[in-house]
Design a protein around this nucleic acid. Sequence first.
DNA 1: CTTGGATTGGCAGTATGTTGTCAGTTGATT
DNA 2: AATCAACTGACAACATACTGCCAATCCAAG
Lengths: 145, 145
Amino acid sequence: MHTSKRVLFLDLVLSVLRLNGLLIAEGDVMTEELNLTHARWKVIGAIALSNNGLTVPGIARVLGQSRQAVQRITDVMVHDGVLEYQKNPNHKRSVLVLLSENGKEIYNTLREVQDPWAIDATEDIPIEELETGLRLVRRLIKKFN
Amino acid sequence: MHTSKRVLFLDLVLSVLRLNGLLIAEGDVMTEELNLTHARWKVIGAIALSNNGLTVPGIARVLGQSRQAVQRITDVMVHDGVLEYQKNPNHKRSVLVLLSENGKEIYNTLREVQDPWAIDATEDIPIEELETGLRLVRRLIKKFN
DNA sequence: CTTGGATTGGCAGTATGTTGTCAGTTGATT
DNA sequence: AATCAACTGACAACATACTGCCAATCCAAG
């Protein structure tokens, strides 16, 4: 007899919370030599995936976070020379956030660490299982968004 | 052609982080009338699933968190009368954490809200997909633990 | 029985995230 | 052109979680 969907789902919820903590820890260890933290590589990743830069609230929407949380991170990263603010022709106050030259180097180095990590983590997991899992997670995200 | 495992996995990682945030928000909304927060129902859930009570570091191990974070929450919840500390015959300093009478009532009320939520969230998701997803998440947890 | 490594409580410092508020900006509707 | 709702920046208060550190306790090996 199958476990009930309710119990299964609650188990899944707690497991996702647990995995979240482990992923953050993994990311922090992986990037500590780059002087990054999980909050920072999330921002770097969001900007790197955009073509023309993003505004702070734009990054927040991509990451599903409050714009205030992102603003604080970007301010620190601009101060550290990883990001740059650039005048936004479409908005008088809301500047665009871009990777600085240093930030682009850091992103490339990040990729060099991240890619082997991803490959190693999935070496014994069939691709079909990853696809099913991702589909489920996306489905739940859409439901709660 | 299938997307590469690497890209698929990184997408899954970001999606899990995103889902984590949404689940916390769901939990906070669901329990705000009970004067709970996500940090508190995680602790209540961990204790409720144990039979003889848990020590603070024991709860931390179940939740995969630092004992300091759990200690602070339990201190507040004992002060609020939701939890009780009880002498631990197996350790002179490390007390057991139990649900108070009030805490048990809160847990029951929590169940009444949580169960319909879980059922609603999964109504159009086949049980096989939940099982596959849970298996994947557990696999990753074991790998990073 | 002693000793040394692991666990625990307590305290401090730091990072990340949330919500709330207010004033300035934007854009669409009238 | 005026207006109003939504968006944005800035600041504040708060909750959660991490690490590091030190002293007390526990437990197992010798």
